[in-house]
Design a binder for these strands. Sequence first.
DNA 1: TTGCAAATTTTGTCTATACATTAATAACGA
DNA 2: TCGTTATTAATGTATAGACAAAATTTGCAA
Lengths: 237, 237
Amino acid sequence: MKIPLQERIRSDFEGRILSGELAPGARLPIEQELMVAYGCSRMTVNKALSALAQAGLIDRRKRAGTFVARPKVHSMVLDVPDLAAQVRGRGQSYRYVLLRRARRRPDPERPAEGALAGGGDLVEVDGLHEADGVPLAIERRLVSADAVPAYAEADFLHESPGSWLLQHVPWTEAENRISAVGASVSEADHLKVVPGTPCLCVERRTWRGAEGITNVRLLFVGEAYDLIARFGPSQPG
Amino acid sequence: MKIPLQERIRSDFEGRILSGELAPGARLPIEQELMVAYGCSRMTVNKALSALAQAGLIDRRKRAGTFVARPKVHSMVLDVPDLAAQVRGRGQSYRYVLLRRARRRPDPERPAEGALAGGGDLVEVDGLHEADGVPLAIERRLVSADAVPAYAEADFLHESPGSWLLQHVPWTEAENRISAVGASVSEADHLKVVPGTPCLCVERRTWRGAEGITNVRLLFVGEAYDLIARFGPSQPG
DNA sequence: TTGCAAATTTTGTCTATACATTAATAACGA
DNA sequence: TCGTTATTAATGTATAGACAAAATTTGCAA
């Protein structure tokens, strides 16, 4: 009996829910019954069920009881690790090639740039991610000079700007947009593919509070890379 | 003083962490100090911090203390709602057109099909998702006849097989693979685009335990649709 | 210095109890 | 019958204390 009772109750019901034995909408025993069944106090039952509720596996309503949640939102956890770590994790060598770097005013024809800059300047950093010398993705990153003053001085010859930002700037909110586009002539040139080749385009915007931090656009060669999301409704135990 | 103290402690630190005031690695006060600062018992502090730990915002180590977690994994929540609901939510009309439906043996040349079928048959259902009469995506779905016996009898003329499965079959694990591909001739024909047009390809496999349930392949017209993931590191309160 | 053992600090779990909050249900009056 | 009010069953929050477990620190010995 080394595992705590609280964990046991939690994993008991997690298992019964995930296995389908307890179908969505099914009612769980009330706390009183569970404290008798497990021979413990109500607080212990309550902590276990509270954790399951926070994990989204059950819904709890006062007076009504505890019910298995319906997986209605169908939300899932998608891991988008650091690209360098991802490549190295496959046993390949990773390299970041700086293509262009400039500090400039936002383009008045692109409202997204103005919103990001917030009246100040933008720092644009373009680069190429390579795995074993093969082009993997083109990255165009716009950073608000006001939001991240130190960014202009950082050295990106050995570290990709993505890694740098992740370690130095906390974000509070982000939006990812994933689409498919054909490579333009210059993009295709860098990626060493035929123009028009279908590419996976990931655009990410991050904010800290109301202040925009950065917009990134990553263009992956379709055959060379795809996003993999493996997930389950469970939380790490 | 309507909000519970437990929630207040939780949201206090959540705010200070997300705003960057408490940087990753920073140490939080020990429970003894917090119970004095908030004038409450240690259990209350403990429940608040346990919730933050479950949400992944802080790490707690015995004897060492409580620390702001590093956002290393960079995992995010991506909502892939029901396609029909998504389209209707935009105020467009949604239609599912059944293209093909067959029960067959798994193709021995495709190991994924054999693994899914698990010795039994497969039910293949191909269809087209339309928004306001415009083709949005082609869906090819393979379902294990053993895992979902009732699937062969379900009627998909008015309901897409995706919605049906979501409501009738619980899954425990899933894998999503997102890539960019050019439309084949027949695909382009259905989607009313030029062959080779870049399309977003979402392949999803779901399992219940070790048993495969279904493999889906959704091919979206690149211009007509993109996946949007908006997220923050926070948990719903 | 190195290595191991003991002491201490901090979180983890648990109890038994109390009162608050919410919402389903029952009771009641127009 | 209908709408309103009271009851009550369930979860939510909180307390004060106790012991367990783990990891850092300290101290002692080889």
